[in-house]
Simulated scan of single mutants.
Amino acid sequence: MIPDVWAPLSGLSVRRCEDEGLINGTWLAGDPPRYVVQRVSPIFAPEVHDDIEAVTAHLAARGLATPRLLRAGDGALCARDAEGAVWRVMDFVPGRTHHRVGSPVLARAAGELAARFHRAVDDLEHVYRHVRAGAHDTALHMERLDGAATGGEGRRLADAILDAFRTWRGRLDLPVRHCHGDLKISNLRFSEAGEGICLLDLDTLALQSIDVELGDAWRSWCNPVGEDSTETRFDLEVFAAAVAGYRETRPFGAEEREALVDAAERIALELAARFCRDAFEDRYFGWDPSRFPTRVAHNLYRAAGQLSLARSARRQRGEIARLLAGG
């Protein structure tokens, strides 16, 4: 039950959010919505709210739209319920959520929004209190998958993912910078006219390299059928538009361009490994019981889809490099 510590919620209707993500439980308060209420997954320490407050305050000071945390009556950024679960309340930002990029126009707006965020936090001085150690340590994810995979269909899929990473051609040594940490398209908010408004789901804010940040974005944006399909492909038209939108606001350096060529393939393989590992451990990702009999079945399906996406990106590596170079 939502802790009774946020006075502005008093008297507001509360309903489950239809666009709920895979990790946190999410409700909307008010009709029309005024606040987003979330039961925070235990994978995120309460200190993550100090990071969210620091970054969103910085964004707001730079004139960017952003959801802000609503402080409880005692001034805290979050609160626990009787069972110990952590809850928070944030401003509701009106707009649209997309679960896939249906056009180059939307991709261009997404790229421009991500670049605005990165440019705004270039001068942010903040030491993150909540650090997800190894969140994008791709080699470690592969090692954990190899250790978790036992037999059957899951082991065969795991071996295919591991083989693909062994022959991946990219680099892993770019410097870190302030990043959102999870730029899948559903974490970007758009106006009805298709303009980028702000970034949502801020639990993953962190210092990481730009190839990880944008590789994760592009593996989401450039997959026209979404994560719940095995018939995936890396859409070069969408990619070209996303790159153009980003570059107009924040141009790439030469070192960034080089590393970004293989970035989407890397993150697709990493996510494939995570989905596949959870098919054995059966404990992390949410799943859709209306489409799949078990979490295991859903995770195997998603892992196969991400592997297919990585293979598509690899086949088009030359075109990806040309587009990043401004071709």
Score class of each variant (00 low, 15 high):
116 R>F: 03
211 D>R: 07
37 V>M: 02
297 A>S: 14
307 L>Q: 10
169 R>Q: 14
119 R>I: 03
258 E>G: 04
327 G>T: 06
200 L>H: 02
305 G>M: 06
108 R>Y: 07
320 I>G: 00
215 G>I: 06
311 R>G: 12
56 T>W: 04
185 I>Q: 05
113 L>V: 05
33 P>F: 01
253 G>W: 01
85 A>Y: 07
5 V>S: 06
129 R>I: 03
325 A>M: 02
153 E>T: 08
190 F>G: 00
134 G>M: 09
40 V>G: 01
30 G>Q: 02
106 L>H: 11
152 G>A: 07
141 H>W: 15
295 R>I: 07
47 E>M: 05
220 S>N: 13
174 L>C: 08
110 A>G: 15
133 A>E: 15
44 F>Y: 15
294 T>Y: 08
97 T>C: 08
170 G>T: 08
226 G>V: 06
118 H>Q: 14
85 A>S: 09
80 R>A: 14
47 E>D: 12
214 L>H: 08
197 I>F: 02
74 D>P: 03
104 P>E: 11
110 A>Q: 09
323 L>P: 03
88 R>Y: 03
3 P>G: 02
56 T>A: 04
81 D>I: 07
186 S>F: 04
65 A>C: 14
106 L>M: 09
126 H>R: 10
246 Y>M: 04
7 A>Y: 02
157 L>I: 13
296 V>D: 04
205 L>D: 11
126 H>A: 09
